[in-house]
Write a protein that binds this DNA or RNA. Sequence first.
DNA 1: AGGCTGTACTG
DNA 2: CAGTAC
DNA 3: GCCT
DNA 4: TAATG
DNA 5: CATTA
Length: 380
Amino acid sequence: MSWLYQRQRKTAKKRLGHPTSWRMVNLLHLRWICKDQRPIGPCVNQDIVDELNKLVGIHESRLGGDDKWKVLQYRKAISSIRKETARITSLSQAQGLFGVGKKTATKIMEIVENGKTKRLEYEEQLDDTRVCKLFSAIYGVGPRLAWQWYQLGLRTLQDVREGKAGVKLTPAQRIGLEHYDDLQLRMPREEAGVIFGRIKEIALAIDPELDLQLMGSYRRGQPNCGDIDILITRPDMDGRTHKGIMRKLLPALHEKDILTKDLSMPHDLDDLEAKYMGLCRLGPDGKMRRIDILAVPYASWGAALLYFTGDDIFNRSMRLLASSKGYSLNQRGLYKNVVRDPKTRVKTVTGTLIASRTEEDIFAILGVPWQEPAQRRRAK
DNA sequence: AGGCTGTACTG
DNA sequence: CAGTAC
DNA sequence: GCCT
DNA sequence: TAATG
DNA sequence: CATTA
């Protein structure tokens, strides 16, 4: 490649000192999706993005080995396409985008010329594709179970409800099935805001020093949200914490009929770090909405904000970048000197905390230009 | 050829 | 652990 | 499916 | 039954 | 959950 590539290769080697490591190799991707700055405004290739996203939907529901990675790759390609300001008109132009190879480029040209891809048309007419997509849209049902049910001869949600072929549901899956239609919908961001406001009021009545934020697609400024994602912490400078907040808050929310169903509970209601997942609604006539409530230690507020703001592709790119620089990034912070078993990649040493208090710290250390939440949208 | 984020809950 | 989810 |  | 994966 | 003790 270019002189730039060669130079980066040398500096990377010098900095990291372990030239054969895959981490260094990753530093040589001159393309870090998390560093991309995209102009605001409509995407001139939105039709392509939309069609590729349909393909993503298909592969998500049938994870037969390679599909998982196809999904990731399509998403990376979509991210590149979204930040391209010129209309894509040729195969070579498409293939020049990072993450777009020959096969995706060919599909892109099909979309440009015909508005659709044969692959999608073919997939959509397949019975197993359609049925697996239907099943895996049930909360708690993934590609594996969907495929298993298909092979057992189930074809409709009614079959599942009746427990045909002796299929058993977990409590969470039963709830997912019961509210299937509601849970396919996104809600207007205003609704998310109102529900959040109610919850915040109740939480602050428990402890006025709590800090609550509405995360996910709401924080990214999207006009509608797939779920409600609430982060809770409490400044601990006065020697107190939010310990036990879940124990008080969850029953209070149930009592007000804001929370309606529990999908999973925190392992310890008194832990400073606790994760609740469930369903909620605006009122008796409101649609059921997915909600996650997360308590995090004050010290990891920034890392938690970063993680729960997303989006998915942005997060993965940040973590990969961190990893390439010898760090490890998770929802608790940015760490150095983490040791993983090279074989299993399982962490054996936690490492030293480098940053976690603010998002800005983490961006700065990783050398990623600051981006407002709304600019962190990669796939869509 | 082999990587592709890193973690938590359920059964 | 496998599966699912975030 | 794409990348090194 | 409790611990483990 | 299945396996183990």
